[in-house]
């Protein structure tokens, strides 16, 4: 059980590195952006995991559960806004990729470097 308690962190570590791997290895720019969003999702998972409290519920305090335990609301606030900012920045990235395709005719990194030579 001791090790199971760390499983969420391990999933975070592996997801983070899957994302990093995609960003390093993949030459296709859209694939790189997808990798970046995996990397981002791993960070989201880490924050939300840390906010979880044994026996807690979602931090919505009503009269019925006013004396209960609640998970930490702060990581949730951070990640809530980060998700929307994440999609906006990814859209900007995709916009740049589309412009690259129109100028170079390709979105494979090695071919772009070949043209730039």
């Amino acid at each position: 059980m001791e090790l199971l308690g760390l499983y969420y962190y391990w999933v975070f570590a592996i997801l983070l590195m899957i994302g990093l791997y995609a960003v390093i290895v993949k030459l296709n720019l859209i694939k790189k952006l997808i990798g970046l969003s995996l990397f981002q999702a791993a960070v989201f998972l880490l924050y939300i995991t840390m906010g979880k409290l044994e026996g807690g519920t979602a931090p919505i305090v009503t009269d019925a559960n006013a004396n209960g335990l609640f998970s930490n609301p702060l990581p949730q606030v951070l990640i809530l806004t980060a998700i929307v900012v994440g999609i906006s920045t990814m859209a900007l990235g995709l916009g740049i990729v589309i412009r690259i395709k129109e100028e170079y005719g390709t979105i494979e990194e090695d071919e772009i470097q070949e043209i730039d030579k």
Binding site: L53, A58, I60, S71, Q76, L80
Partner: peptide, 8 residues
């Protein structure tokens, strides 16, 4: 959702 983050 399982981690109590309904908003997220």
């Amino acid at each position: 959702f399982l981690l109590d983050a309904a908003d997220v």
